[in-house]
Structures are given as C-alpha cells and as structure tokens.
Design a protein around this nucleic acid. Structure first.
Length: 110
DNA sequence: ACCGTGACGGTAT
DNA sequence: TATACCGCCACGG
C-alpha cells in the first residue's frame, strides 16, 4: 500500500457536507507532516475519478486555490452543492470540519 | 549533492 | 482578522 493509496482512501471517506484539511488527511492516513504530499496526490488525480477532492481545504478553512481561479470557483460550487457554506473562499471548520462531532461528543456518539 | 517549487502548517506582527 | 515568515517533505532539474 503506497502513501498515495492511503491518502486517496481517506479522502474517499470524508462524508458529503463536511470538510477536512490537508494536514488532517495526512495525519489520519498515518503520514504526519506530509500535508503537501496530500496536495500532490490530489493534483495528480484525474478529474473524472470519483474522489471528493473538493472536501479538502487548508488548515484555516481556506480553499487552496486563488478565489478567482477556475479550480477555486469549481471547488466552492461543489461544496455549496453539498450544503457547505463558503464565504470569501473560506469555510468555517468549526461548523463543517470533519470529526467535529467526535471531538465534542466522543467517538462513541458518532 | 545543490537548489527551487508547491492543492501545506504554525507563529509572530 | 490579515500578512509575513519560516519550517517541512517529496520531487525534479
């Protein structure tokens, strides 16, 4: 199992309607400190592949692309499509961040 | 081996 | 809250 596989596997697990950061994905994939690797894997992932790459944001909730870029707008649209509120190219991780429930209520309540 | 690059992160201002 | 910097890691030239 290559690092890229574990990363893709994890991204695929992010539920619709919530988001995760590159670093979070790296950590959960057992690759601490490889946030940039996550970006690379997603970058090299074909657009047609059924991977929810749009649910991955920076640690501060900002979309990794320039707000006016084509990719940036596309990502924002797809997120909005799932009910994720995007304002100023940014998402409130406190509300849409993955695992928030687990953090607040404990893994057993999820 | 050296250096620059990047879908990143954390801290200091 | 928004920038500016600097650290990190994997790659490629």
């Amino acid at each position: 199992v290559t690092p890229a596989d574990r990363i893709a596997n994890l991204v695929a697990r992010i539920p619709a309607g919530s988001v995760a950061s590159y670093g979070q994905v790296a950590d959960l994939a057992g690759l601490p400190g490889r946030a940039r690797l996550v970006g690379k894997v997603l970058r090299e992932t074909p657009p047609d592949r059924p991977l929810p790459w749009h649910r991955v944001l920076r640690a501060d909730g900002r979309i990794a692309f320039p707000p006016n870029s084509e990719s940036g707008r596309r990502q924002a649209d797809r997120l909005a499509e799932e009910g994720v509120e995007v304002r100023g190219g940014r998402v409130d991780l406190a509300r849409f961040g993955w695992n928030l429930d687990a953090v607040l209520w404990g893994p057993g309540a999820v």
